[in-house]
Simulated assay, not measured.
Amino acid sequence: MRRTGFTWDPAARLARVMTVASRRKARNVRARPGGRVSVCQVDGGRWLTLEGPAAVSD
């Protein structure tokens, strides 16, 4: 199973998502630059959700 990872830079208020260009996530963002996205992480009964505009960089 493939997983997508992310990093969080609190000073810049920036989440970086690591994925492959051919994956649906990257294709969706390329189709709608600046569109809003969310990233969620679940750990038992706790979770984290980050939301905001997206851009793809290679």
Rank of each mutant, 00 (worst) to 15 (best):
A26Y: 02
R3H: 13
V17R: 01
V20G: 11
P10A: 04
S57V: 15
V20W: 11
C40V: 10
S57H: 12
M1G: 15
R24F: 10
R3S: 14
D9C: 05
L14D: 01
A21L: 14
Q41I: 09
L50K: 02
R36M: 10
G44K: 01
D43G: 03
V39K: 08
C40N: 07
A15K: 01
R46I: 02
R16C: 02
G45P: 02
V29Q: 02
S22E: 13
R13D: 08
G35K: 07
M18V: 07
A21S: 13
L14K: 10
G35F: 07
A12W: 07
R13N: 09
G44C: 07
L14Q: 11
A12M: 13
A55N: 07
F6Q: 04
R36E: 05
L50I: 14
C40I: 13
T19R: 02
V37L: 03
L48C: 04
A55C: 06
P53Q: 08
G45I: 05
R24K: 15
W8C: 03
R3E: 13
R46V: 04
A31W: 06
R2L: 14
A12T: 07
C40Q: 05
V37S: 08
A21R: 12
A54C: 10
M18D: 05
V17K: 00
T19N: 03
V17G: 01
A21D: 07
S22W: 14
D58I: 03
Q41T: 05
T19I: 01
F6K: 11
P53A: 06
S38P: 05
S57I: 08
R24M: 08
P33K: 04
G52F: 07
S38A: 15
R3A: 10
R2N: 14
A31D: 04
R46P: 00
V29Y: 00
R23Q: 09
D58M: 08
V29K: 00
M1V: 10
P33W: 03
N28D: 15
C40S: 14
L48W: 06
R36D: 11
G5Y: 09
T49K: 09
